[in-house]
Amino acid sequence: MSAPASRPALRGPSRLEKAEGWRAPGQDAGWLNPVTERFLLLLLVRKELRVRYRGSVLGMVWSYVKPAVQFVVFYIALGVFLQLQKDTPAYAVYLFSGIVAVNLFGEVFGNATRSITGNAPLVSKIYLPSQLFPWSSMIVALVHFLPQLVVLVVGALLFGWVPSGTAAVAFVLGLVILLVFTMGLGMLGAALNAAFRDVENFVDLIVMVATWLSPVLYRIAMVEEAIGGTWMWWLYQLNPLTIVVELFHVAFWRYGPDVVERAATDPSLTQPGEPFGLWWAGLLIAAVTFVAGTVVFERSKRRFAQEL
């Protein structure tokens, strides 16, 4: 009687498979998933864009409509009725550069928070690295940000703005701080929203309040005049969104010809710590927020399927 055939021994990944990034099913690269799974990330971005504009007549034109309406309402209410344009040269550029920054913050934060619950069928039925969902929401927000940025640049050029190295550095710093900070908040919000659906409503409130607690509609000199020298003034300055909005102002408004001319006689048009202010504090706070959000997301992701 012949001996039964032995089962082939299970083996681990070979050196070649390890070199090619071999992973067992159900495992992922953690916070590096957006880099290692670029193809899947691109598919999710395309899916979100198609779903968002399915049945829409205007499509991407809506990327212009919301900021345009915001700008017109705020400009008429604050610039014309409250006469803020008299004390702020090129107020239209000042206002729109802040609106663009806050809109990007709101879209990334809101979409990332809803990314897990909004993709519940994918999260609960098949395996996909969960980090791809908030990251794809961030990329979609950047797609909508680009048309607004083009309008802002054109508007600034019409007011005599000339691109410079200082403007480029301020814009890049502001964008990096904004994306790192908001993605940290977004991943934290996504993890909490999977368990508590009330979180997305709090996010909407935060975005609304952030518009008024940042120097978007008014100049920061007005805040310093009201609460300068107090702990509230320092807290206001350390708000990462305040730092980002001020960097966008430096990039597109502060060094326009009308502003430079008026600033020679009106020191209130200058900004604390010009030209880049507290960028280092904003970057540090953004990095800490990103790490905290990533850690909470990583620890929560295995419960997403059950919670959904």
Rank of each mutant, 00 (worst) to 15 (best):
G106S: 14
M232H: 11
G118S: 10
P129I: 02
W212S: 00
A156T: 10
I99M: 11
V216F: 04
W233M: 11
G160A: 05
A195S: 11
L149S: 06
L178W: 07
P134W: 05
D198S: 09
E224H: 15
G184F: 08
K125T: 14
L179R: 02
S115P: 11
A194W: 01
L152K: 07
G228Q: 05
V209P: 00
T211L: 15
W212I: 13
V169A: 13
T242G: 01
G189P: 07
G98E: 07
F159E: 13
V123D: 00
D198G: 10
V172N: 04
V199M: 07
A156H: 11
G184N: 13
A195Q: 12
W212V: 14
T230L: 01
L213V: 15
V176E: 01
A156V: 06
Y218S: 12
A112W: 05
G228E: 08
Q237E: 13
L173I: 13
L192A: 15
T182H: 11
S97D: 07
F181R: 04
L152E: 00
L205N: 11
T211S: 04
P147Q: 11
N193L: 09
Q237M: 14
S214R: 07
Y236K: 10
I206V: 15
L142K: 08
G160P: 08
F96H: 02
L217H: 12
E225K: 14
L104D: 02
A194Y: 01
A156C: 06
L205T: 14
L192S: 10
V172K: 05
V180N: 05
V172M: 04
A167W: 01
V216C: 07
T211E: 00
D204V: 03
V199G: 04
Y236E: 04
S214I: 09
V123T: 00
F181K: 02
F96Y: 15
L188E: 06
I139H: 04
V180A: 12
M138N: 06
P215L: 01
W161K: 05
F145N: 03
A170I: 05
L104W: 05
N239M: 10
T242F: 04
A226M: 14
V151Y: 06
A170H: 03
I99H: 02
L146R: 03
L205F: 14
P147H: 11
F181Q: 08
S130M: 13
L173K: 09
A226R: 15
